[in-house]
Amino acid sequence: MLSISQEFVDAIYAHARADHPDEACGVIVGPASTGIPTRHIPMRNAAMSPTFYEFDSMEMLKLYRDLDDRDEVLVVIYHSHTSTQAHPSRTDIAYASEPDAHYVLVSTREELAGANEFRSFRIVDGVATEEPVQIR
């Protein structure tokens, strides 16, 4: 189960809506000791695409170095789908490489008419499993 504050849910949605129709991406990190998400870091989508996202490689190096220095971990890795459901695609599953992270997807597709669709998955060894989300 992913336990996350309303503040972070809102921040992820604000980022996704701001970057729409391109996909938005980022992370919520937290102390390695607790695994509780405490810090939102929006990442640049280097692909700048409505159908693809990729963390900018230099921004990503800095992120991982900071995590090491601060003894933090990636708790949530999120991205938006801008014309499809908030469900991992085949490419999302193929490239997922953080088995300990919660992969959050949000959708900003038009049919939702501004409603939120926020879902969380574990993606391990090529299998995505949806998990409950508890918003605090």
């Binding site: 991982y64 801008t82 490489s97």
Partner: peptide, 11 residues
């Protein structure tokens, strides 16, 4: 040397 799998995907 640092190896990091890209964080990437697509809809």
């Amino acid at each position: 040397l640092t190896i990091l799998p890209a964080v990437a995907g697509g809809s």
